[in-house]
Simulated assay, not measured.
Amino acid sequence: MSLRMRLREGPVQLAPRLGIAPSTVHRILKGARMNRLSYVDRATGEAIRRYEHDHPGSLVHVDVKKLGNIPDGGGWRYVGRRQGERNRVATPDKPKNKWRNPKLGYAFVHTVIDDHSRVAYTEVQDDETAATAVGVLHRAVEWFSNRGVAIERVLSDNGGAYRSNLWRDTCEALSIVPKRTRPYRPQTNGKVERFHRTMADGWAYARCYTSEQERRDALTGWLHHYNQHRPHTACGNRPPFSRLTNVFGQYS
Rank of each mutant, 00 (worst) to 15 (best):
residue 2 S to M: 07
residue 10 G to D: 02
residue 17 R to D: 01
residue 22 P to Y: 01
residue 32 A to T: 00
residue 33 R to F: 06
residue 33 R to V: 06
residue 37 L to I: 00
residue 37 L to D: 00
residue 38 S to W: 04
residue 44 T to S: 15
residue 48 I to E: 02
residue 53 H to A: 03
residue 55 H to M: 11
residue 55 H to L: 12
residue 57 G to L: 03
residue 61 H to F: 14
residue 66 K to D: 13
residue 68 G to D: 00
residue 71 P to F: 09
residue 74 G to A: 08
residue 75 G to M: 07
residue 76 W to R: 12
residue 77 R to W: 06
residue 78 Y to N: 07
residue 80 G to K: 09
residue 81 R to D: 08
residue 82 R to G: 04
residue 92 P to L: 07
residue 92 P to V: 08
residue 93 D to T: 05
residue 96 K to D: 01
residue 102 P to R: 09
residue 105 G to T: 08
residue 106 Y to E: 11
residue 109 V to I: 15
residue 110 H to D: 08
residue 111 T to V: 14
residue 112 V to W: 07
residue 113 I to T: 13
residue 119 V to T: 10
residue 122 T to M: 15
residue 125 Q to I: 03
residue 128 E to F: 08
residue 135 G to C: 05
residue 135 G to V: 05
residue 137 L to C: 12
residue 142 E to C: 04
residue 143 W to Q: 09
residue 144 F to R: 12
residue 146 N to W: 00
residue 149 V to R: 06
residue 152 E to G: 10
residue 157 D to R: 09
residue 159 G to Q: 08
residue 161 A to M: 03
residue 162 Y to R: 02
residue 164 S to K: 08
residue 170 T to P: 04
residue 174 L to N: 07
residue 188 T to D: 04
residue 188 T to N: 03
residue 194 R to M: 04
residue 199 M to Q: 14
residue 199 M to H: 15
residue 201 D to C: 04
residue 204 A to T: 12
residue 207 R to K: 14
residue 215 R to W: 06
residue 221 G to T: 11
residue 224 H to D: 12
residue 224 H to N: 04
residue 224 H to Y: 12
residue 224 H to V: 05
residue 226 Y to I: 04
residue 226 Y to P: 07
residue 238 R to T: 13
residue 243 R to G: 08
residue 247 V to C: 08
residue 252 S to Q: 12
